[in-house]
């Protein structure tokens, strides 16, 4: 490798510690500590519920965090509702396979308006509270670095992920497929008997995006259609 005299300097241990906050699925990077569901409820009520709702059920800023998982899912490691096409939404706990993800994310990014302000123990506590809301741990549970692997073994959708697809470049994952799963042929004429139209823009959606006339140039090959309300003048 080329050398670049004068460029960059070694990071100090304190610097690496300050920024290396990631926690992996194998719990590499997980800080020591613990927090109870009770303590988590206090954190939640003061710092989280305004956005996510008392029971993390709020739809107002984001899809609910909990709901849609069952005790059966905790056995199979598959959220059964994900197979249903009529299930109304996909909560965080329905999807997330790795509890490390939640620890890592809450520590780095929540509360949304004051990220990175929770202590490590508070992150344990509020995560314990969410796990309890999701009916994964009991209400007297205390989550810690020592028992988090046991929680992982109960995550409802822990077996719900696959890397068997061609959308990762190279052989990064052992189980993957490397051939695209879709595609087409470059047929040029009489490629099908007719063009089968299966969906059109619903009437209400025409006007839901404002006046399209004002979203297109007033000169050129085309004009925008006159639809919904004009944007407020700038």
């Amino acid at each position: 490798a080329e050398s670049f005299p004068g460029v960059g300097r070694p990071a100090t241990p304190a610097e690496v510690k300050a920024w290396d906050i990631d926690v992996g699925p194998d719990f590499a990077g997980l800080p020591k500590g613990s927090g109870s569901v009770d303590r988590g409820q206090t954190v939640w009520e003061s710092k989280c519920e305004s956005c996510h709702g008392t029971f993390a059920e709020s739809n107002s800023v984001f899809t609910p965090l909990v709901g849609g998982t069952t005790a059966e899912d905790m056995k199979t490691g598959h959220t059964a509702n994900l197979r249903r096409t009529d299930f109304p939404q996909r909560t965080t706990f329905m999807k997330v396979a790795t509890v490390s993800t939640l620890y890592d994310y809450i520590r780095r990014a929540m509360p949304w308006n004051a990220p990175k302000t929770l202590s490590d123990d508070d992150v344990y506590a509020v995560l314990a509270y969410l796990l309890n809301l999701a009916e994964i741990v009991p209400s007297d549970f205390t989550l810690s670095d020592a028992n988090i692997a046991e929680v992982q073994a109960m995550m409802p959708n822990r077996n719900g992920m696959t890397t068997a697809h061609a959308l990762w470049p190279g052989p990064g994952f052992g189980t993957e497929a490397n051939k695209p799963d879709t595609g087409n042929t470059p047929c040029m004429s009489n490629c099908k008997p007719k063009a089968e139209q299966v969906s059109i823009l619903p009437d209400y959606a025409w006007n839901a995006h404002g006046n399209l006339a004002g979203q297109n140039r007033a000169v050129g090959p085309v004009r925008g259609m006159k639809t919904g309300p004009d944007e407020a003048e700038a």
């Binding site: 999807k95 396979a97 696959t162 697809h165 061609a166």
Partner: peptide, 13 residues
């Protein structure tokens, strides 16, 4: 999310 209820993870390209 695939029809079988599995999620493809690390889909990137």
């Amino acid at each position: 999310l695939m029809p079988d209820g599995q999620h493809r993870q690390y889909t990137s390209i």
